[in-house]
Simulated assay, not measured.
Amino acid sequence: MATYPKKNVFLSSLMFLLLIGSSYAITALDGNAICGKTLNPSFCLKFMKSNPKISSADLPAVAKITIDSAQETASKTFKKIQSIAQKTTDPKSKEAYSSCLDYYGSVVGNFDKAKKYLAAGDPVSANIMVSAAMDGPDSCIYELKNVKADPSVVKNSEYIVNVCGITLVIVNMLPSRT
C-alpha cells in the first residue's frame, strides 16, 4: 500500500518534467501556427518537416536552425554570383549581378549578428538583423528580373527570403531576456 503513493508521486513528477521539457518543442500545432503567419505557409511547412532536428527543438533552437540554413545558402549564392559576374559579357547582366554582389555583401555578417543576438536573448535585435539580411536576396531578385538570370541564383534568393520569413515569425514569439 505504501508503494501506491510513491508511484503517484513519481508519475506526477515525470509528467511535470515532460510538460516543462516539451513546452518549447515545436509540435505540429506550433508548426502550423508559425507557418500560418509567414508569407509562404506551404514552403514553411515543407521546411519544418524536412529537418528532423526541428521536431524536438525549442523555439530559439529552431530560429538558429533557420538562420544557419539561410546563411549557408547565402554563402553559396554569393560565390555563385561572383563567378557569374566575372564571366558574363552582357553589360546589363554584369550590372545586375554586380548589384546582387553589393546586396549580398553584408548578408552573411547580418546572419552572424542575428545569431549572437538570439543567443543573448535579444529577439528584437535578432529580428532587425534577419530583416536586414533578407533585404539582400530580395533586392537581388528584383535586379535580376530584367536580365536572363541564372535560375539557381533566383531560386536560392527566394529560398533565403522564405526561410528568413520563418525566422522572423519565430523570433517575434520569443520573450526578451535583455
Rank of each mutant, 00 (worst) to 15 (best):
S50G: 11
Y117W: 09
F78W: 08
Q86V: 13
G105K: 15
L18S: 06
K87T: 13
T38Q: 03
K64Q: 14
I84M: 08
G105H: 10
S56A: 12
G136D: 05
S55M: 09
L14T: 14
K64Y: 05
S125P: 04
S23K: 08
A2K: 14
S50N: 09
S131I: 05
I166P: 04
N146M: 12
G21F: 08
S22Q: 08
D122V: 09
S125M: 07
S50I: 06
S157R: 02
S152R: 05
F16N: 13
Y4S: 14
A25S: 06
C44F: 08
A114P: 03
V161A: 04
P41Y: 09
K155M: 05
M1A: 14
L118Q: 06
S93A: 15
K79P: 04
K49N: 12
S99F: 14
L101T: 07
A149K: 05
K53T: 12
T167K: 02
N172L: 05
G121H: 09
P123E: 07
V147G: 07
P91S: 09
F47S: 07
P175G: 07
N110I: 01
Y4R: 13
Y24G: 14
K49Q: 10
S152A: 12
F47Y: 13
C164R: 00
L18W: 10
D135S: 14
T3S: 08
M134A: 09
S106P: 05
Y104L: 11
L39I: 12
A70D: 03
V154A: 04
S56F: 11
I34C: 04
K7H: 11
A120M: 07
D58L: 00
K53F: 11
N40I: 09
P151C: 02
M173W: 07
A119F: 04
T73Q: 12
Y97M: 05
A96P: 11
